[in-house]
C-alpha cells in the first residue's frame, strides 16, 4: 500500500512540469505577435514594445522558459497586464469560490446520484427505475443556462428563497450548486446503476446470501464496494471539470469563480492570467486524478497489488 502510494505521488511531479510547459507554450504558440494582440488595436508601437519587454518576449525562448519555471518554484505566476496585480493573487481571490461551488455541487451529485443509481439497480425494470432513468437523462441533457435561469425565475424572483446572483451570503451557493450538480447527478446515477447491477450478479454476492447475510450487508457491503470503482472514476472526472471552473454556471449566477476570471482574461487578452489559470486548473486536475487513483487502491486490493 505504502509503496503504491509513494510511487503514485512521485509520478505527479513530471506531470505538473509537463502542464507548466504546456501553459508556457500556449502563450508562445498563439498565431501572431502576443504583445501586439495584447496591447490592443489602438496601441502605439512604443506601447507594444513596452509590453513586449514587460512580458519578456524580447528575450530568447529558452531564457523565458527557464525564467517561467524558476518563478513557478517561488510561487510566482507573473503579473496581470490589466490590473497590475500578481496573477497568483488574482487566482487566489477566485479559487476559493470555485472550490466551494464544486464541493457543494459534488456532494449533492454523489448523494443523489448514488441513491438514484442503487434504487434503480435494485428495482430494475420496474416503474421507479424508469422514472429515475428519465430524471438522469434530463439532468444530463438539460442545458445549465436554461435550467439555471428557470431556477432563478422560480426560487429567486417568484419565491424569493435564494439570491439570484453573486456570492454575498451563504445561501448564494445553493442555486448554482444545484444547477451545476444536475449533469453530474445524471452521469453518476447511470454509472452507479449499471455498476450495481453487475455487482449484484457477482458470484460473491450469491455466496454472501448463501452465508445468510442480511439484505443490508449484501447490498451495502458486498455489492456496493465492488461497484464503487467505476463510480469513483466518473466522480473524479466530474469533480475535475467542476474545479476547472464551470463557465456557464458561473456566468448565469454571477458567481465570482475561476471560470469567470478565465473568460474575462481572454476577453481582455490578459495572457499572464490566462497562462496562470490554465496551469492552476491543470494542477487541480492532476491532484483529483491522484486522489481517484489512491481511492481505487484503498477500495480494491487488486489495484495496489498490481494485479
Amino acid at each position: 500500500m505504502m509503496r503504491y502510494t509513494l510511487t503514485r505521488i512521485g509520478s505527479v511531479i513530471p506531470t505538473v512540469l509537463g502542464a507548466a510547459t504546456v501553459a508556457f507554450l500556449l502563450l508562445r504558440l498563439i498565431p501572431g505577435d502576443p504583445a501586439r494582440i495584447s496591447a490592443g488595436p489602438t496601441a502605439t508601437p512604443e506601447q507594444v514594445e513596452h509590453l513586449r519587454v514587460q512580458l519578456g518576449l524580447d528575450r530568447p525562448w529558452w531564457e523565458q522558459y527557464l525564467d517561467f519555471m524558476k518563478n513557478l518554484f517561488t510561487g510566482s505566476l507573473g503579473t496581470s497586464t490589466r490590473s497590475g496585480n500578481s496573477v497568483a493573487a488574482e487566482i487566489g481571490t477566485r479559487l476559493p469560490f470555485t472550490i466551494q461551488l464544486a464541493f457543494w455541487a459534488m456532494l449533492i451529485a454523489i448523494v443523489v446520484g448514488c441513491a438514484l443509481g442503487i434504487v434503480g439497480a435494485l428495482y430494475r425494470g420496474r416503474a421507479i427505475d424508469f422514472i429515475f432513468s428519465a430524471v438522469s437523462v434530463i439532468g444530463v441533457s438539460a442545458p445549465v443556462f436554461w435550467i439555471g435561469l428557470m431556477m432563478i425565475v422560480l426560487f429567486s424572483v417568484k419565491l424569493g428563497w435564494f439570491p439570484a446572483s453573486g456570492a454575498a451570503t451563504p445561501a448564494s451557493v445553493v442555486l448554482p450548486a444545484v444547477a451545476l450538480s444536475l449533469f453530474a447527478i445524471g452521469f453518476i446515477s447511470r454509472q452507479t446503476r449499471s455498476a450495481m447491477i453487475d455487482a449484484l450478479s457477482m458470484d460473491a454476492v450469491r455466496t454472501a446470501r448463501a452465508k445468510g447475510m442480511s439484505g443490508v450487508n449484501v447490498i451495502g457491503k458486498q455489492a456496493l464496494r465492488n461497484a464503487l470503482v467505476p463510480v469513483i472514476t466518473v466522480v473524479g472526472l466530474q469533480f475535475g471539470q467542476m474545479l476547472g471552473g464551470s463557465i456557464l454556471t458561473e456566468s448565469v449566477f454571477g458567481w465570482p469563480g475561476i471560470g469567470q476570471l478565465l473568460v474575462n482574461s481572454i476577453n481582455n487578452r490578459d495572457y499572464p492570467v490566462v497562462q496562470g489559470v490554465v496551469f492552476v486548473v491543470a494542477v487541480l486536475l492532476i491532484l483529483v486524478n491522484l486522489a481517484t487513483d489512491l481511492l481505487y487502491s484503498a477500495i480494491d486490493p487488486r489495484v495496489r497489488h498490481g494485479n
Binding site: D203, A208, S214, G215, Q222, D300, P301, R302
Partner: peptide, 27 residues
C-alpha cells in the same frame, strides 16, 4: 427471505463451482 436467512449458512451451507469468483475480491 428473512426466514431463509436464519437457515442459510447456519443449518445448511453451500459451496460453488467457481472458487475464483465465489469469494468477495475486496475483503
Amino acid at each position: 427471505e428473512r426466514g431463509l436467512r436464519e437457515v442459510r449458512g447456519k443449518r445448511m451451507a453451500m459451496i460453488f463451482q467457481e472458487p475464483m469468483s465465489s469469494l468477495n475480491p475486496v475483503y
